[in-house]
Simulated scan of single mutants.
Amino acid sequence: MSASGAELERLVGIMARLRAEGGCPWDREQDLRSMRPYLVEETFEVLDEMDRVAYGGPWRSLCEELGDLLFQIVFHAQLAAEKGEFTMEDVCRSISDKIVSRHPHVFADGQVKGSEEVLFNWEKIKAEEKKRKTGREGSVLDGVPTAAPALLRAERLTEKASRIGFDWPDVAGVRAKLYEELQELDEAIASGNRDELEHELGDVLFSLANLGRFLKTPPEDALRMAGRRFITRFQHIESALRAEGIPLGEATLEHMERHWQAAKAAEKALPPPASLPRAPLTSLRFCVSDVAAQEAFWNAVAPLIGWQAERGAPSEACYGDGALRLVFTPGSAAGSLSGAAPSLTLGAPSVRAVERLRVALEASHPGAVQGAEPQRIRFRDPAGLLWEYTV
């Protein structure tokens, strides 16, 4: 059994113990209805951590929140098992069978030309599965939860319809439709009719959701991040007014707008959201024969792993991650310390980060890469130091 399989079995066992005689009184009192709020809460906590990671935050907290969400799934499976309905094993088997069945181009001899054909085949296979179970194919739009956030649901509805060809040919058509809906909203605003306002505003929001899908920018995510920015900027206004001794509610709109613009300017001065989390390093100081060569090499590499150049002695090249420092100082070549270059390991935040560094190194320093695998890359710098960047 794999390590992940063993840990899942352990979690299932813990859940069974919590629900058994002599287990936890609170866990034993729960049912499907009482657990609904916790499932929703844990889902949104995962989304919060995903947003933080997207802005350069650490991955560890996301790992913990995913564990909390997994616990909810195990909890619900335990409730079903107690009633003889299904077990966690059935849950795993069901999704595994579904994924294999809907990817014949991976697990069978099917062929596809691209991701669009994958989605088309997915809906076709899904309809066939439903017909076997219920006797009818159902609608392509089935499966979009009615309880999902409305903006997310709008995007998913248009995405599902697009899988069978009901879609605009290009983004220009989507943008023109949005303009049309905005004109109709203006007419509703002029009329003042409440029903028309709701109708036309809904059409505008639906068109915006569809535009977000075309731009490959999920509107639910975009709006959630806009909300985060609004909170940050508004709290900046509140702090600035307090510092000026102006009671909240007594500042003019123009005064608050100045602070709002200052908050926006501060946001733009921050590193881009795509910057990578800093990589951990244990060893700090090395003597090298050519500090200038080291400096040229690391000036290119450091930004790619979340480090930055720092001020050191005139003859040194220094780099830091905010807590630790890597210092290259003149002296004997690092590779001659014991007949072989020492090897150091940097922690990569993702497989994508590993690939990004490999591509950059092969372009800027041919020959530096000593070996590459999907989850790690080994490279040598001008001083002979051997580095490993790994997930």
Rank of each mutant, 00 (worst) to 15 (best):
G249D: 09
L201A: 08
Y179D: 12
F166N: 11
E181N: 11
E244K: 06
L157D: 07
S207H: 04
M225K: 13
L182K: 00
A240T: 14
E244D: 15
E159I: 02
L178I: 13
E184C: 07
P218M: 09
G212A: 02
E257Y: 03
V171F: 00
G212N: 03
A240D: 01
R175D: 00
G192R: 09
L241C: 07
L223Q: 09
P247T: 00
P218C: 07
A240C: 10
H255N: 03
R242N: 14
E257Q: 11
M225N: 10
G192F: 02
R224E: 00
H236E: 01
I237A: 05
I189F: 13
L205R: 08
F166V: 13
A188F: 07
E181T: 09
E257F: 06
G212W: 05
F206W: 08
G249N: 06
K177D: 15
Q261F: 10
E238R: 11
H199V: 13
E181W: 08
T158W: 04
L157H: 08
V171N: 03
R233D: 08
T217D: 00
A226G: 05
L208D: 10
K160R: 15
Q183E: 07
F206M: 08
L201H: 01
I237M: 12
F230P: 02
P219H: 02
F234V: 08
P219S: 12
E220A: 09
D195E: 10
I237T: 11
L211K: 02
H199M: 04
N210W: 07
I231T: 03
D221L: 14
S191M: 04
L157N: 03
N210K: 04
L182C: 12
E184V: 10
S207V: 05
W260V: 10
R242T: 08
A188G: 14
P218E: 00
A243T: 15
E250G: 03
I164C: 09
E181F: 06
V174N: 00
E250C: 04
A172C: 06
G173C: 08
A209C: 07
L182A: 06
A209W: 09
R233V: 11
D203E: 14
D221C: 12
A190F: 13
E238H: 10
I164P: 10
E257H: 01
E257C: 00
E187F: 13
H199I: 13
G165W: 09
R224F: 01
H259Q: 05
A222E: 13
V204Q: 03
E196H: 04
R163A: 10
A226R: 15
L208H: 12
T158N: 00
F166E: 12
H199P: 06
R228K: 15
A172M: 11
P169E: 08
E187S: 14
T252R: 11
